[in-house]
């Protein structure tokens, strides 16, 4: 199951992929596009308890709605929520797999805290990555803040390590408002992978289980000085 959407300002793109292996049972007769309003879907999902199992069903000939079935195994209770679909007419942008100059993996919570700290100083985030480490800078009117991560030397705790693969040094600027929105997905996984390259959108990826992922693409900000040609 995959989902792709661009935000209204065309600045960020979200791409979600849920592999077949993630589901207990998965049956799909052919490739179809389902258009759902996220607001309505979250209303439907609120009907479920935390321990329930959820089943999504869509019948092609039977109308234009998706059925969510929540089953509570302990109480033998099932709940069927039907949500009407939306007609979303948008193209799927093909994003080619690219070789990024810098790939950095770090604990998701760390990244979230860094972004939150830096957002108090500035509305743009500068990421500079070299072989020595990755540096997050936020400079603003009231002051600035610089956070540096060097690749962890001790690999005692796998999930706490910061790994860095650098093919060439990278320096990019981003809008921190969007980064903060992305870090809301921290609950999904322990690690986050940042792929950077000069003048190319950054990929913030939260892996889901084995092969699924939630990826955010954010376009870099144009520097004022560079553009004054």
């Amino acid at each position: 199951m995959s989902l792709q959407a661009m935000d209204s300002s065309h600045v960020a793109l979200v791409s979600l992929k849920l592999e077949v292996g993630l589901f207990d049972t998965y049956r799909c007769d052919r490739t179809i596009n389902l258009g759902l309003s996220l607001a309505n879907m979250s209303k439907a999902l609120k009907c479920a308890n935390n321990d329930d199992t959820c089943m999504l069903k869509y019948e092609e000939n039977e109308g234009d709605s998706i059925i969510f079935t929540f089953a509570d195994p302990k109480r033998d209770k099932t709940q069927d929520v039907t949500v009407k679909m939306m007609d979303i007419d948008s193209e799927h942008l093909g994003i080619p797999e690219q070789d990024y100059a810098v790939v950095c993996e770090m604990p998701a919570g760390e990244f979230q805290k860094t972004c939150k700290d830096l957002s108090t100083f500035s509305d743009s985030l500068n990421i500079t990555a070299t072989k020595a480490g990755i540096v997050f800078t936020g400079k603003g009117d009231i002051g600035s803040s610089v956070v540096t991560y060097s690749p962890s030397s001790n690999t005692d705790d796998e999930s706490e390590a910061v790994t860095l693969e650098v093919k060439e040094p990278v320096n990019v600027n981003f809008s921190i408002k969007y980064m903060n929105q992305f870090t809301k997905a921290t609950a999904l996984s322990d690690r986050v992978r940042l792929s950077l390259c000069n003048d190319v959108p950054v990929v913030v990826e939260y892996p889901i289980e084995e092969n699924g992922f939630l990826r955010f693409y954010l376009a870099p900000k144009i520097d004022d000085e560079e553009n004054m040609e």
Binding site: H10, G94, I222
Partner: peptide, 21 residues
């Protein structure tokens, strides 16, 4: 705010779109 925000960020997917919005 809005127009400037759009103008300041470059294209998300430069290969399949033009170089400008």
């Amino acid at each position: 705010d809005l127009v400037k925000e759009m103008a300041q960020t470059s294209q998300i997917e430069a290969s399949s779109q033009k170089s400008f919005k």
